[in-house]
Design a protein around this nucleic acid. Sequence first.
DNA 1: ACAGGTATCACATCATTTGGGTATTGTATA
DNA 2: TATACAATACCCAAATGATGTGATACCTGT
Lengths: 222, 222
Amino acid sequence: MPTSVKEKKMPVKIIIYDDNQNLRESLSNLLALTGEYSIMGSFANCENVEAEVLKMQPDVILMDIDMPVVNGIEAVKKIRRFNEQVQIIILTVFDDNTHVFEALYAGANGYLLKKYISDKLIHAIQDVLTGGAPMSPSIARMVINNMQQPVQQAISKSDYQLTSREKEILQLLAQGNSFKMIAADLLISIDTVRTHIKHIYDKLHVRSQIEAVSKAINEKLV
Amino acid sequence: MPTSVKEKKMPVKIIIYDDNQNLRESLSNLLALTGEYSIMGSFANCENVEAEVLKMQPDVILMDIDMPVVNGIEAVKKIRRFNEQVQIIILTVFDDNTHVFEALYAGANGYLLKKYISDKLIHAIQDVLTGGAPMSPSIARMVINNMQQPVQQAISKSDYQLTSREKEILQLLAQGNSFKMIAADLLISIDTVRTHIKHIYDKLHVRSQIEAVSKAINEKLV
DNA sequence: ACAGGTATCACATCATTTGGGTATTGTATA
DNA sequence: TATACAATACCCAAATGATGTGATACCTGT
């Protein structure tokens, strides 16, 4: 968890990257109104993002995605190579899967659609500073759907009615143990292991160790 | 994306599950104030959740987690077996990883901490109905951190300097093919397959098929 | 032209796995 | 109580895999 809770008094240092000059000025004005934020700089592109971040040591960066020369996602990656602390909020018009996930994978802390700026930006900045991750609701939905996918496969998947002993043995097998090692582990004879494994093969409709392990791991049976 | 946009006029049908009677009444009152919501029912436990949801066909369900008999996460799973449309918002005091992910995996659409109910509940209900996923900011942060993990593993992962032929053979092996089948597939002799596999074992530091396949799949080499 | 790496093939030996069986015990259940 | 199933154990014969040693051929870079 980030540890960027500000001490009182100290204004929050912010840098803005966006190629639209009007927007940069609007943001600066909006943030200046509160008196709690100090705009260290605002830039139309990310050509010198590393130097700028290093020099100004901002607490928060507001980052557009679609900019000339270096796009915002690349810029986030560059920043994250040397700075894990700064809170980065993406401000963009893109609400498609690709942009959202690339940005979050790259290391962004929040993702706010531009249409919500006037409503939510101040709140979003407070969120990231207190360890939250502000996202427009539609973005959050995409993220959740993304994490649910593998599970929905899991739900539809049958478990082949393996007994608990058989699951145990399949698990040991999938971890790379030989019959002999499994027998030693479970304190039973190797022939018993063989019998269980024969039953497992029958139930999984496979004919060898390798097929069983492959199927077990791929279908997350273990 | 969900298609539960309500037509005007029709009030939004809501069911509440929470074992705290005071909270159930507070929620009902809060929602009744606006006149846009119709509380179809509120229950202290999920014993008959399936029948209730089937009968009342709610648009939104507000679900506590910690309830006697059937907990909220199990209830979400039960509901999702027959109803994909209803929007489920978890209302809970739990903000730990386990509860959050289990709930979202189970099929919840939003996750709101109880301390934010007065501030955010109305908004959260609007969110889920318009395809959003309301989450408390700290919850969103957990979700994002979770999705960033696998990538960081991926980056640090070594490739053991396998040649392309070796990777090809390892892949076929991990799909459950015997040496014989691999040889037939690649139109080479079984002894050649053996040799490649010997080299693979050396490079992966393993001594058997299963160990190699287990390592390959778990480290996403294939 | 030579060294190093890759891909190919062969032979031999020993260990492990597989595919048929059969059988005993205990537990749960119709 | 009779039946079914899970877990245990054993046997035999055949297939497959593990390991070592050696060899040929083709690139690539020096």
